[in-house]
Design a protein around this nucleic acid. Structure first.
Lengths: 215, 215
DNA sequence: TCCGTCGTTTACCAGATGGTAATACTTTCA
DNA sequence: TGAAAGTATTACCATCTGGTAAACGACGGA
C-alpha cells in the first residue's frame, strides 16, 4: 500500500507469493500442490514463503482470503437500474465474468471451486467461505427484495429466490470446470431467465407500482 | 460374482479395498489420502492393495467407477406414476437419499463431490463422470419429456429443464457438504417446487397433445 | 564507518510416502 | 502327496516433502 516500486520492499513479496500460489494451484490442483511448485512460480526461492507465512496451512488460509477478496472485488454494479435489469446484470457477471476478461476469470474460478469443495475437510476454510457466501448471496437477494418492494417481482421469499439463483450459478460453473461443459453458463443463463425471472415477473396484483412485462 | 463366502476368495478382497478406500477418503479427504490410510481401514495389510491394483492412480480410477455404480444403483423408481409425482419422487431421492439411510448417504455424497471437483484436474476422471452425469441428467430429463408429451407439463426444452433440476440438486448437496448448510436440500426442494415444477405445470392449452406455452 | 535489522539464499535434513522383493501360507489339481 | 498358482505378510528402500539453520547482502541510523 504505502511502498510500491523499489527492490527490497516486503509487501510486494507477499503479493508475489499469493499470485505464485494461484498459478501453482491452477496448474497442479489442490491435492497435488507442493510448496516447491509455488516456489517455481516465483522469482525468489521457495524458502521465502516460510519467512512470510507460517507453514503450508497458514499460507493456504491467507490465499483463500486473498482469492475471495479478489472475487468480491470483481463484482461491481451500479444499483440504479430497474430490478429485472439489475438482477440480470449481476447474474451475467457471475456467469460470464467481469466485462473484459481482465485476468483469466475461469482459471480463478477453477481454483475457487476446488478450495470450496475442500472446505468440507477444513473447518477454518469452511468458516471463511460461509461469511463470503453470505455476502454473495445477500447481494443477489437484495436485488430480489428491491424488486418485490417496488412491485416488479411477485411476492415471494427473497432469500429462497436469491439462494436458488446463487445455487444455479454455482452449479453451472462447477459443471463447466469439472465436466468441461463450456456451454453450462449459457444454459444456466437461459434457465434462470425462463424459470426464475419469468416466475418473479408474474405479478398478478396491481400494487404500488403496477408493473408488468409479458402480455 | 461366482465365489462368495470362503476365506481366501480374492473377489471379496477387492470389495474390501473399495470400502476401505471409501472410509479413508471419507475421513481424510482426497488431498490428504495416503495409501497407508486405506490400509489402516482394512483387516489386511496395505500391501495387498498393490497386488490387486496397479498403484494409487489405478486404485482411484477403479474407486471412482465403484462409487458411481453405487450411486446409480441406489436410484430406483417405478416410472408408472404421473409425471409430477414421478418427477418429485426422483428429485426427493436425489436430495434426501434412498428410503432408509441404508449406508451413510451423506458420507458417500461427500466423497462423490470431492471426486467430482477433482475431475477438473484429471482427464480420465472427467470422462468417467461425464458418462455418469449424462445418465443421471437423462433420468430426470425423460420424466420431463414424458410430462410434456402427456400434456401435463407445458411445452419447453426438456433438456434444459432436466439440466436445471440436476444443477439445483447438485448445488444444494455441495452447499450442505462444503458449507455445512444442512437445510440446503430442503430449500432446494422448495425452490424446485415453487419455480420449476410450478412453471412446468402452467399449461394453458386444453388438448392432450396440443400444448402451447407463451401466447 | 560500523552495526543491527530485515529479507533472501544456500545448504541441509528428519520423517513421511508410494512402491518393491522376498517370504510364507493356502488352495487346487495331477 | 506334492508341486504349481494364487494371495497375503514382512522387511525394506529410493525418493520426495515441508521445514529449519546458518550465511549473505542491502539498507538505515548513530
Amino acid at each position: 500500500m504505502s511502498t510500491s516500486d523499489e527492490g527490497s520492499v516486503p509487501a510486494d513479496t507477499r503479493e508475489d507469493i499469493m499470485e505464485a500460489t494461484f498459478r501453482a494451484l491452477s496448474e497442479h490442483g489442490y491435492s497435488a500442490l507442493r510448496m516447491r511448485d509455488i516456489g517455481e512460480e516465483m522469482e525468489m526461492t521457495r524458502q521465502v514463503i516460510h519467512y512470510h507465512y507460517d507453514g503450508k496451512r497458514d499460507l493456504m488460509s491467507s490465499f483463500l482470503e486473498y482469492i475471495i477478496d479478489q472475487y468480491e472485488g470483481s463484482v461491481e454494479v451500479d444499483g440504479s437500474a430497474p430490478p429485472r435489469e439489475e438482477l440480470e446484470a449481476r447474474v451475467h457477471q457471475c456467469l460470464f465474468g467481469p466485462g473484459f476478461e481482465e485476468f483469466s476469470h475461469w482459471d480463478r474460478m477453477k481454483v475457487y471451486h476446488e478450495l470450496f469443495t475442500h472446505a468440507q475437510n477444513d473447518e477454518e476454510h469452511r468458516e471463511i467461505f460461509n461469511e463470503h457466501y453470505g455476502r454473495i448471496r445477500g447481494s443477489i437477494t437484495e436485488v430480489v427484495e428491491d424488486g418485490i418492494e417496488r412491485g416488479v417481482f411477485r411476492d415471494t421469499d427473497p432469500e429462497r429466490a436469491g439462494q436458488l439463483i446463487t445455487d444455479i450459478i454455482h452449479a453451472a460453473r462447477g459443471r463447466k470446470l469439472s465436466l468441461g461443459h463450456d456451454d453450462a453458463p449459457e444454459q444456466a443463463w437461459r434457465s434462470i431467465d425462463e424459470f426464475v425471472v419469468d416466475s418473479l415477473l408474474a405479478v398478478d396484483a396491481d400494487g404500488p407500482d403496477t408493473v408488468e412485462s409479458d402480455a
